[in-house]
Write a protein that binds this DNA or RNA. Structure first.
Lengths: 113, 113
DNA sequence: ATTATCGGTTAACTAAAGGTAACCGGTTAC
DNA sequence: GTAACCGGTTACCTTTAGTTAACCGATAAT
C-alpha cells in the first residue's frame, strides 16, 4: 500500500533505501535477477551478464543483498559445484525502484541525443 | 511513455541514471525541491532542511544538478542577496524515482521493526 | 565598531567504494 | 599430469565521496 509521510520522513526513507540499494551495482544485480527469475543464476553467469563487475565486487554485493533478505544463495548438488542466486519474494519489492530508474535512464538518453 | 528495452539496455539505463542521480544527496535534494515547489528555496534553507549536508557538498551537488538541467539557480534582487533554486520541468521527471525509493524505504522500515 | 546573515569557496583530511591481479581448493576433461 | 571451469578470497592500490573548519565579500542590524 501507499504510505504517507512528512517531507522529513520522506528524506529519511530515501536515505534508508540508498543505504541498502545504493552504489554502482546492487540495483543492476537486482534487475538482472528479476529479469531472469525463471533461470538458474550462477556466480559466473551473473558476472558475465552484469557487464563490468569484478568477482570481488560481485561477491561482496551478493553477500550484502543476502544479508538484507533480498536474495537467496543455494549451493547446488552439481559437478562442478554451482551456486544459484535467486531473488526472494521480498526482493521483488525492489522492482518498481529499478523500473523507474530504467525508464528515467532510457528517457534521458533520448533527451540528450 | 513507457519504453521497451532488452535486459542489457535496461542495465545500461540504470547505470546512466545512477551516473546523474546517484550518491548520497542528489535524490534527497530533488525530493526536497519537489516537495517545496511553490516556495523559494535558498541555499541556507535547503541546507537546514536536507539534514546533515555540508555547505561544500550542497554547493557541489546543486552545480551538478544544474549542469544536467534538473534545477535552475536564480540570484534574487534582495538585500542581502539570496539565491533561489527551483526544479525544472525536466527535473520533475525525477519524481517517480524518488517516490519509489520513499515507498520502499518506508516499507522496509516497517518490515524490519 | 562589532556582530550576524547570505552564499558560497578553499584546503586538508578521512573514509568508503571500487578496480586489478594473484591465488585457493575441488572437479572434470584431455 | 596438465589445463580449464566453478566460486570465490586476499592483498594492494587508486579513485571518489564526503567531512571539518577556516575564510571570503557584501549587506544589514545593534
Amino acid at each position: 500500500m501507499k504510505q504517507e509521510a512528512t517531507c522529513e520522513q520522506e528524506l529519511i526513507a530515501i536515505r534508508d533505501s540508498l543505504e541498502i540499494l545504493g552504489g554502482k551495482w546492487k540495483l543492476r544485480i537486482m534487475r538482472h535477477l528479476n529479469n531472469h527469475i525463471t533461470e538458474t543464476n550462477t556466480f559466473k553467469k551473473i558476472q558475465r551478464e552484469v557487464e563490468g563487475i569484478s568477482a570481488k565486487m560481485l561477491s561482496k554485493e551478493l553477500q550484502d543483498l543476502e544479508t538484507n533478505l533480498l536474495i537467496t544463495r543455494t549451493v547446488m548438488n552439481t559437478r562442478p559445484i554451482t551456486v544459484n542466486y535467486a531473488i526472494t519474494e521480498y526482493g521483488k519489492s525492489v522492482f518498481p525502484v529499478t523500473e523507474t530508474l530504467v525508464q528515467w535512464g532510457l528517457n534521458h538518453r533520448q533527451k540528450i541525443k
